[in-house]
Design a protein around this nucleic acid. Sequence first.
DNA 1: CTTGTCTGCCC
DNA 2: ATTCTGC
DNA 3: GCAGAATGGGCAGACAAG
Length: 512
Amino acid sequence: MLLTRLAQVSRDVAATAARSRKTALLAELFREAEPDDVPIVIPYLAGRLPQGRLGVGWKVLSRPVPPAGEPTLTVREVDALLGELGKVSGPGSQAQRVRLVGELMGAATEEEQRFLLGLLTGEVRQGALDAVAVEGLARATGADPAAVRRAVMLAGSLQTVAQALLGEGPGALDRFRLTVGRPVLPMLAHSASSVAEAVEKLGACAVEEKLDGIRVQVHRDGDTVRVHTRTLDDITGRLPEVTAAARELRGERFILDGEVISFDAAGRPRSFQETAGRVGSRTDVAKAAGEVPVSPVFFDVLSVDGTDLLDLPFAERHAELARLVPEPMRVRRTVASGPGDLAEAERFLAETLARGHEGVVVKALDAPYSAGRRGAAWLKVKPVHTLDLVVLAAEWGHGRRTGKLSNLHLGARTPDGGFAMLGKTFKGMTDAMLAWQTERLRELAVEDDGWVVRVRPELVVEIAYDGLQRSTRYPAGVTLRFARVVRYREDKRPEEADTVEALLAAHPEVEP
DNA sequence: CTTGTCTGCCC
DNA sequence: ATTCTGC
DNA sequence: GCAGAATGGGCAGACAAG
């Protein structure tokens, strides 16, 4: 199949609003694909590369290459070239990558270049990724969409399922059962703004501590232990403590879901930055583990001794978990039978925060494990802080925000009467706010380099954030975690904005 | 060898 | 990660 | 309620440049 077909369909999908129509367009293309093209075409149209990341990013792709006049590239040629690209490493590899990308782009038409660019940067912007591709795949093969979706969750890979389905038909879906050793997409949580709201929505529920670490899925099959991240990356080699802990458990075959976090000598959780740095270390694991040891803390079990527990209610899964995993290796929790137990749930949240953790996750006791979904059965509750900050600059948006000033540079007051930048945010703005701030900031503009518009520091904005982090990039030595706009404070003058000093005082646990 | 740039992947 | 938007 | 878009910050590691 020619790449130009994919580029056309991608463009058509992008131009279509209705998901049903996007699905139909994808299904039509999938039906056309020859068997050998399938494992390439499907991931490409889901906006992902079968090889995963290639060490090619914005910098390499930003060099313009004159496009070809006629479309001649086949998807298999592209796949072969990208496969090569993924393999280059060592001295001179950067130049080699630039050369290979140049070769590929030079053989592509303008439309194909656009498509490849989106694919390589992971920003296809066609309003269709895995989920729509799954629907399209189901329609192309006549399979039940729910069955295809479930197979993809259990296989942890769209590509694998697509190949089996197109090669063998709907019968192949039965093969994708929960298997120890094969990671499945983890269940995710929604947010709630208070424990009361969460308990109200869920009824009988468990309230569990939320640890600020790295999500892990641990598989043990006899002596073999594998540890995977939220995106199913295999990080077994970086976490010897987790492997050892899994081997100590009495079960021989199981899949556990939990968090990995580092505690200090006093048993207090280390900062997310410390835990994440440790988990990210792979060149000298023994040394990293000596300095920052980590512990697994589990909260769910998906499989024990060959039994798939996914469809059991959480209450029953947790009973299995308690049988398999000793208490110190499980998250702390309390159970609420409904809004009547709200006081206990709130006491538990307060205690959890006092112990240095991030918040709680409230989980419906009757809910199954919805692999790969952000189910409404899990609601996380974290304290939210707010500040009044001053907009120092804004960046021009992209995609659906083209032509709008979007990403705000936020400043807090300093003792000298100036402002220290604390970070940026583009979150929390409605389209109306986006339009309003674009106009307002334009009036305040003092400089526009085509990317950043610097403004007079006069506009005050209320910002919500989850906490402070140390920063080497920003002048105050700290930055806001997950900053988002709440509302503009036109009633406030910049001299009334919050100060760096007050911010630091409010977060004594973070040292700049 | 040191420093800076880029990428990928955690949240 | 969080939030908004269209389906 | 789901799925997707838009875009944040830190950190480790691989290379490039000096």
